[in-house]
């Protein structure tokens, strides 16, 4: 039996239209965001290195500032992620005009 290549998966396509490309990168950003959040929220642990013990008031401002920032970024990302570009398959129904 010959080795037949698996059917091409749309997710593995090497080239994408600009819109789909941007869409994917937005998805990457959305996956990365919680990691960035973890990193920023763990940062206060480094404050323990200081000679002076960290103050709660300062920590409060820091944590809520990061929190707000994450919410703003997530709110910016969410509607853009849901806005799906029309899929290539969908256009096959309508007549396409070849140049």
């Amino acid at each position: 039996m010959t080795d037949t290549p698996p059917p091409p998966d749309p997710q593995d396509a090497p080239f994408l239209a600009r819109q789909s490309y941007v869409q994917r990168r937005l998805g990457d950003a959305a996956r990365l965001l919680p990691l960035v959040g973890v990193l920023l929220f763990l940062l206060p642990l480094l404050w323990l290195m200081n000679a002076e013990a960290p103050r709660t008031a300062r920590g409060l401002i820091y944590v809520f500032a990061i929190w707000t920032g994450l919410i703003v970024v997530a709110a910016w990302l969410a509607p853009r992620l849901m806005h799906r570009p029309p899929k290539a398959i969908d256009t096959s129904d309508s007549p396409t005009h070849e140049p």
Binding site: P44, L45, P54, R55, T56, A57, G59, L60
Partner: peptide, 24 residues
């Protein structure tokens, strides 16, 4: 209020790394 927090018994942040990470 921030001043009040600073002078409260919890004003110094007793950051316990294990609990901070573990509870998150």
């Amino acid at each position: 209020m921030l001043d009040l927090i600073d002078t409260a018994p919890v004003g110094a942040w007793e950051l316990r790394p294990g609990r901070w990470v573990g509870l998150m």
